[in-house]
Design a protein around this nucleic acid. Structure first.
Lengths: 179, 179
DNA sequence: CCAGTCTGGCTAACGCCGTTAGCCCCTGTC
DNA sequence: GACAGGGGCTAACGGCGTTAGCCAGACTGG
């Protein structure tokens, strides 16, 4: 869909404030009200954007469950378990969709416009990787927090974020086996 | 400051969309432009709001370092270490400042308007509790993720979030001792 | 082949937003 | 008692999402 492509490009290249109906319409060579022939409102466009990103992220984390994929870093043999692989895939894809991810975490975002079950599906690899609901949610929270803080540049400059991801992965990996 | 009090009340009671200059002014019985005699712009008001919340949260987590405080849950003897106490204090205070916390995590929030060093000071208890920079950042990310997801209602209904906080605390607690 | 409907544009406008310019009154001070 | 300044005010600007209402062209049923 041309509208979504244009919106995505604006969001990525010019930031969230530039994502306005008039601006999107401009990029398509039409006027803002015409957009409402294709989408009910701005939130619907945002939801479509987020849906696309979530599908890609979900595909990556699902793939990570079944072995090292293209998104996984290569570390010392045997140090990266399933949790680590899922986290690495999650991180890579989320940072690849930085602006859209940020949009989805905005409190004003209308999560109920997403396809039913999408969020559960996307979160499922965390449950599979840990085998425990509480641990899965904890890992997901860690991952979400890391991405958000990384995206917003809230870690002190010079932080070794690879090490932080590793520290988290190891803590949860151990918790899963020692449980 | 009356402006901040009014803004805080509006934000808590009517939500982030209701936090407009005209609305805040209304609550004070004045007109919107008059607010600019007290604050440079809306972002300055938001920054003041966030500063207040961060100070309170920081005080609570610092206090938690030195023993069980009023914000700490009572569990089986010996199960809650320093990390657990800091996390419990963080959670309680953040949820107590839900709307402001949400505001501070908005990507549009101007973090550079906060007092210099405030963020570092507020995050320090995580470093003290873990004794390791990477682990501290991982714990902070976990905590931040949990609060955000909890605030946005993104966990499946019926989730035992106390258990999730506990799972995270234990994983990091163990990681700290086993390191 | 024509009539009709539907798709997808358009302009004008509304009510909201943050913000600025410029005015004026009231209070406190030398 | 002059005067400065703090803190109100109105009017207005440009931008936002969104709606109402209009109309050209394409597609389709008779």
């Amino acid at each position: 869909m041309a509208v979504i492509d244009a919106a995505r490009k604006i969001l990525d290249l010019e930031g969230p404030d530039a994502l306005t109906m008039r601006h999107v319409a401009d990029a398509l060579g039409i006027r803002a009200p015409s957009l409402y022939k294709h989408f009910a409102n701005k939130m619907a466009i945002e939801a479509a954007l987020v849906t696309g990103a979530m599908v890609e992220i979900g595909e990556a984390t699902h793939a990570a469950l079944h072995g090292p994929g293209p998104g996984s870093p290569v570390g010392p043999v045997g140090t990266v378990g399933t949790v680590g692989r899922v986290l690495a895939a999650y991180r890579a894809r989320c940072l690849g969709h930085a602006a859209v991810y940020r949009l989805a975490t905005q409190s004003s975002f209308a999560r109920d416009l997403l396809p039913a079950g999408l969020e559960d599906w996307a979160g499922n690899p965390f449950y599979v990787a840990t085998g425990d609901p509480s641990l899965a949610q904890a890992v997901w929270s860690f991952a979400h927090g890391m991405v958000v803080l990384e995206l917003d540049g809230r870690f002190p400059p010079g932080s070794d974020l690879d090490a932080t991801w590793r520290a988290g992965a190891q803590a949860f990996e151990r918790a899963g086996t020692t449980r």
